[in-house]
């Protein structure tokens, strides 16, 4: 009887500790959390993003000095990878995704940090920009991909690619060799030369290469770069966007 009671109490305590651990994964955004985040930032991020988060760390001297992208300016710069409309701040989850996955070719993934540590550093990063204390950003509706792509859908995706002017920058075949790119007309908001993504190489897609990530990039645009947001101008025309997504995916090989 006593053993049974002890087992029940033990199980209860175990469940309680698991529950409290789950709650602790995303800590409350307070001074203590930000201080812990600063400790991580000072050893993991400061080299590129700088002590004040302005993207002017010691490594910034050669990263993005003559060509985009520069390390992100957390204090006032644009946030590229968002699920929010153009010109808006990112959601916390957007920052978490970028910290976790990194940016291919530019920033390493920090999945080596625990989830809690990643949230702590995000709390600290947000403290560089006062705008985060204002109204909370609202994400666009980003649905799950519809059923498997069809031949007709991909054909329509190709037409949409032309209609949306994707070839101007990404080129007729998606190699990132559009006329604007070849003429050197594409610049970021700092006036630095910037290259469009090579749609035939999934690793070059900085905001992710899944169907949903491509949909997100098309709808939100990549602030700070010439890539515009299509959400408003084509609002309600989801089918064309998904066809475009599957067309873009058809240009590259899925890596296992």
């Amino acid at each position: 009887m006593r053993i049974r009671i002890l087992i029940v109490i033990g199980a209860g305590l175990a469940m309680l500790s698991i529950a409290s651990f789950a709650n602790a994964v995303k800590p409350e955004d307070n001074q203590a959390t930000r201080e812990k985040g600063k400790q991580i930032y000072d050893r993991a991020c400061i080299l590129c993003h700088g002590a004040d988060g302005k993207g002017d760390g010691p490594a910034g001297w050669f990263i993005g000095r003559y060509e985009s992208p520069r390390p992100r300016d957390f204090a006032g710069g644009s946030y590229k990878f968002r699920s929010t409309p153009s010109g808006e701040l990112p959601m916390d989850q957007d920052l978490f995704r970028t910290v976790t996955q990194g940016i291919p070719g530019n920033m390493p993934p920090y999945s080596g940090l625990s989830e809690e540590e990643r949230w702590q550093v995000i709390a600290y990063i947000k403290s560089f920009n006062k705008a985060f204390k204002g109204g909370k950003p609202v994400a666009l509706l980003l649905p799950n991909p519809p059923g498997p792509p069809s031949d007709a859908g991909i054909e329509n995706g190709r037409k949409t690619y032309i209609k949306y002017g994707c070839q101007n920058c990404h080129g007729d075949n998606g190699y990132g060799d559009g006329k604007e790119a070849l003429d050197g007309n594409l610049k970021d908001t700092y006036g630095l030369m910037i290259s469009p993504g090579d749609l035939t190489e999934r690793a070059s897609l900085k905001n992710g290469s899944s169907a949903q990530a491509l949909y997100r990039s098309i709808m939100t645009g990549l602030d700070g770069t010439p890539m515009p947001s299509y959400a408003d101008t084509i609002g309600g025309n989801d089918k064309d966007v998904w066809d475009l997504v599957y067309y873009i995916l058809s240009l590259s090989q899925e890596r296992q």
Partner: peptide
């Protein structure tokens, strides 16, 4: 040096209001 708004204006698309 920061994007306030960057929207595509597809021919025949919806006007933007922000």
């Amino acid at each position: 040096n920061s994007t306030a708004l960057n929207v595509a204006m597809v021919a025949g698309g919806n006007p933007i209001k922000k």
